[in-house]
């Protein structure tokens, strides 16, 4: 983050040029069609500024994904498919977010715990555990 800050200024000029090129995507081909995003987002006045911020954040998230093992070939398309809000969320709390992975490795642990909770009548997983009447 720190080194990113130092780089931010020179890089941002290049990026602003990029934004202008990017903002040509979609219906805004001519002077000014209003995009659906602006209508649903309904915050037009802040659009341009937040676009620059969002683009800088996108670079941040790309770096974050790369450093977590995503190949550089895949990073661009993955970040492109995210909304500005999603990019912002990832930039700020990626490591606190749940990553759905493997349930298999934990089955023994869950088995023991659920065995206990079943017997307590808190869960109802195993038919062979005598459960208190519920429902």
């Amino acid at each position: 983050m720190q080194s990113f800050r130092r780089l931010a200024k020179p890089v941002s000029y290049a990026l602003i040029t990029g934004v202008l090129a990017l903002s040509l995507h979609g219906p805004a081909a001519r002077a000014a069609m209003v995009s659906t995003d602006q209508i649903v987002g309904a915050q037009q006045s802040q659009q341009d500024r937040s676009k620059v911020v969002a683009l800088l954040t996108r670079e941040d998230v790309k770096t974050a994904l790369s450093s977590r093992g995503v190949s550089t070939a895949d990073v661009q398309a993955r970040v492109d498919a995210m909304t500005d809000q999603e990019v912002h969320a990832l930039a700020t709390k990626l490591d606190q977010m749940p990553a759905g992975g493997d349930a298999l490795g934990v089955l023994v642990l869950v088995f023991i715990i659920l065995l206990i909770t079943d017997a307590m009548g808190i869960t109802d997983i195993f038919p062979f555990v005598k459960k208190p009447a519920r429902r």
Binding site: L65, G69, S71, A81, E86, L94, P98
Partner: peptide, 19 residues
Amino acid sequence: PQVYLPSREGSLQIEMLAA
């Protein structure tokens, strides 16, 4: 390659939506 995040050994919700 569209959703899996190796260092987390899993996939994030946001990336599931994006994919």
